[in-house]
Each structure stands twice: as C-alpha cells, then as structure tokens.
Design a protein around this nucleic acid. Structure first.
Lengths: 148, 148
DNA sequence: TTTTTTTGGTTGCATTTGCAACTAAAAAAT
DNA sequence: ATTTTTTAGTTGCAAATGCAACCAAAAAAA
C-alpha cells in the first residue's frame, strides 16, 4: 500500500468540508459585524426560514435547517431574548409553537440580506454556476446516501 | 423581492455543508464502533497525517488538518492518553514537538483503514468520480476565496 | 373511556469548541 | 550582547453542541 494512496480522499474531504464551512460562517459573521449589526450565523440560518415560511413550528425549522430540536429551541431562545421573534402556541395543537418575526426581526432580516448577498459573492468568487450546481447536488446526495 | 429568490443559495449551502459533514463523521464513528474499535473522527483525522508524514510537528498537523493550535494540542493529548502517539521534542528547535506513532498507534491505524474505506464507499454511493472531483475542487476554491 | 404510544418541545449535563492570554524558545533588530 | 519580535505549543474560560431524560399534549389502541 503506497503511502499516499488510500488515505487521501476521505480525510481530505472531511477536512475540506469543515474548513470551508468554518470559513464561510466566519466571513459572514465578520461582514455582519463590520456593518454594525448583531446576529450569529446560526440565528441567521433560522431567521431566513421564519421569514420565508411566515410562522413555522420549531419542528419545521429543525427539518429545514437540518438541526436537532434542542439546538432549535436554544436558537429561538436567543432570538426571543433579542426580541426578534416570538413564540405563539398553535391554536389547535397545543404542543406546537409557531415562531413569528417581530417588527425588529423583520427589520434585521432586511438589513442582513445584502450582507448575506455580499458574503455569497465572496464565497463563490470565480466558481461557475454549473460547478455550484454540481456541488450542491453532491452534498444532497451525500446526505441522502447516509440517511437511508 | 420574491420570497424564495435571494435566500436560497447561501442558506442552503451552509446548512447542506454542515449536515453532510455531520452525517459523514457520524457514520464513520458508528462504523468504527461496530468494529469494536475506539477512535473519534478528530483523532483519526490527525492519525492519518501522522502516519503519512512520519513525525510531523503539531504545526504541520494543524496546517494539514486545517485546525487551530489548541485543537491539535488537545487531540494529541487524547491520543497520548491512549498511548497511540508520543511527543518528542525536536533536537535542534526546542519549541517544536514532533508527534510519533507508537506500535499501538500504527496497529490502530491499520485496523481503522478498511473502516475508513468502507465509510468512504457509503458516503460516495453512486456519485461519479467526476462529480467528486468537481466537488473537492469547489471546496478548495471556496477556502481559497475566503483566505486571501 | 381509559391506557399506551407518539409527537413537539425543553432542560440538564458532559463534552467540544473557539478565543485570548500565556510560556518558552528561536530569530531579528538594535 | 541585549532587547524585541516572532513562532510553537499550552492553558483557562466562556459559549456551543450533542445526548438522553423529561414534560405535556395529541393520537392510537385497548
């Protein structure tokens, strides 16, 4: 077995993925900070879907954001602390809590949107649309491969 | 601005990346466990390069694994606790500590290798070689875009 | 109708991380 | 030759994460 053969792929892939992910969030946070705003990547990741879906349950958010229940609970807690969202019990199913943006939450969302856009540009650089498509596709496939 | 336009890319990308990464490590850990072995993904990620590079410094490992110094320190600590590696001060530069596999470390490496290989297969599934290449390429580009 | 199971969400705890401060040694500057 | 700066690695602490146990409401089974 040659020293650099079988190792390469898997290890590098894992390391690359983590590193890319870290760099992306780091850059986003930095851009947000530079704009004088205050929201973490995790919070933003949840804020978007809340805006998009109007008043999703926490379960919905978990599924969309691919995060577990406690994590969602805590992120929503933090957003609520900042008065960006409120929790509203569902009228018919009292287990469900729907998350709704406050006025401040909507405002922040609109303020952060261009920063997200800018970060997106920086992340993508010269990478072609087609490559990005394949990239996302492979990610989805990997996730599917491992959850079935 | 349409409700699902500008959001999609960045958010999904971040979420997809994290999720894929999580699933991968989770599967690896599970496969390792099922084989009755005992090593975490992080430890494995470092063990490989140590084997490959013979006696890298911790700095080397950090650069290759794309992790910061404290993280490497702690992973090496944990490997040393398990007697899989030892730290050896560099003869000429006393700041540098070189990390060397013990006999047990080498053995574990060889034992885990096929599990890593199996995990790799599971992760890849039906994804073509070409797609994987582009995938890795995009990851590298993203990292480069954000560190320059 | 009562009991059991499932579902949505929360809490607590142990582990991991991320950062900044710190030590010790080497290199560079004075 | 002494001081300053840089480099390699460690430590400590605050925040984030993952997991399992938990509660309360709804659905299914008895």
């Amino acid at each position: 077995m040659s020293k650099d053969a079988s190792l390469k792929f898997h290890m590098n892939l894992g390391m690359l993925i983590r590193s890319a992910h870290n760099s992306m969030t780091e850059r986003f946070v930095q851009n947000v900070f530079n704009s004088g705003l205050d929201i973490s990547m995790d919070q933003w990741m949840v804020l978007g879907p809340i805006w998009q879906l109007e008043s999703p349950s926490q379960k919905d958010l978990g599924e969309i954001c691919l995060r577990d229940k406690p994590t969602i609970t805590r992120i929503i807690d933090s957003l609520e602390d900042k008065s960006l969202v409120v929790r509203v019990s569902d009228q018919i199913d009292h287990r469900i809590k729907r998350v709704v943006l406050t006025k401040a939450g909507k405002q922040l969302f609109y303020d952060v949107l261009p920063i997200m856009e800018k970060t997106r540009e920086e992340v993508r650089g010269e990478i072609s649309e087609q490559e990005i498509e394949i990239f996302k596709n492979v990610l989805s496939k990997i996730i599917k491969n491992l959850n079935s």
